[in-house]
Computed example of a mutant assay.
Amino acid sequence: MTDEGKTLPHSGQGAEPSSARRFPTGDLARVSVFAALIAVLGLPGTLNVFGNAVPITLQTFGVMLAGAILGTWRAALAVAVLLVLVAAGLPLLAGGRGGLGVFTGPSAGFLIGWLPGAAMIGWIVERGGRTPGLARLLAACLAGGIGVVYLLGVPVQAAVTGLSLGKAALLSATFLPGDLIKAVLASLVVRGTQRAYPDAVPAVHRERLQTAGER
């Protein structure tokens, strides 16, 4: 009787709040919205320059926004949701691409790089606390949205196309001006969003969840 009295409150009351804190409805909604946003940014299509097999798209801009606003794990989850839907055959990538074939093509490394790239952006922004400055936001977008994505994308492009690593890196350098512009724009958009809506700051959102969980 005494053992049951001790066990039931622990299992009944302890597991539920933990689950609620881990997957709150609001977080699932935000993840879905940003997965959709990245997909929508593919609607304008693709642009291939200098014969590069990897197209230029606006979707990296969405990855940067997701990382800076959602934070580490929610941004990674948003990108993962998109990539799973793409793998299932939905034409959600720029140019109406979809299916498992895109993960064996020249741009496969860049696509896979979106996930750790978004997580890296979120992690850097989270380290900025309740008021991450514009410089931190820009550094996060550059490190995650360009550095991490290129780090995975260039070697895979070289392997798939048969180019040397140096030549693949040179071809990918044609993306840099556009990606730098995306990083600056994403930083400005996120900074304005966070000023108008403090819950868009990952650290603030995390604090509110922790406070709600303690009540």
Rank of each mutant, 00 (worst) to 15 (best):
M1Y: 13
E4A: 13
K6M: 11
H10M: 12
S11Y: 13
G12P: 05
G14D: 13
P17N: 13
S19D: 10
A20P: 01
A20L: 10
R21I: 06
R21G: 12
F23W: 08
G26H: 12
S32T: 12
A35C: 12
A35F: 07
L37R: 04
L41F: 01
L41N: 00
L43I: 12
L43D: 04
G45P: 08
T46F: 04
L47I: 13
G51N: 09
G51Y: 08
A53H: 06
L58G: 06
G62S: 07
V63C: 09
A66F: 03
A66I: 00
G67D: 06
I69S: 11
A76I: 05
L82S: 07
L83G: 02
L83N: 09
L85Q: 14
L85H: 04
V86F: 01
A88N: 11
A88P: 05
L90E: 09
P91I: 05
L92T: 09
L93R: 03
G95F: 03
G95I: 08
G98F: 01
G98A: 02
L100V: 15
L100M: 15
G101V: 09
V102H: 03
V102Y: 06
V102W: 07
T104F: 07
T104R: 12
G105N: 04
P106Q: 03
S107Q: 10
A108R: 05
G109T: 02
L111K: 01
L111Y: 02
P116N: 06
A119I: 01
I121H: 04
I124D: 06
G128K: 04
G129K: 10
T131Y: 09
T131F: 13
G133V: 07
L137Y: 08
A139I: 13
A140C: 07
I146T: 00
G147T: 02
Y150R: 00
L152R: 01
V154C: 09
P155R: 00
V156F: 10
T161H: 02
K167E: 10
A168K: 00
L170R: 06
L170N: 06
F175R: 11
L176Y: 06
P177T: 00
K182M: 08
K182T: 08
V184Q: 03
A186C: 05
R191A: 14
R191N: 14
G192V: 12
P198M: 09
P198I: 07
A200P: 09
V201F: 09
P202N: 02
P202V: 00
H205I: 03
H205S: 15
H205Y: 11
L209R: 06
L209Q: 08
A212M: 12
R215Y: 03
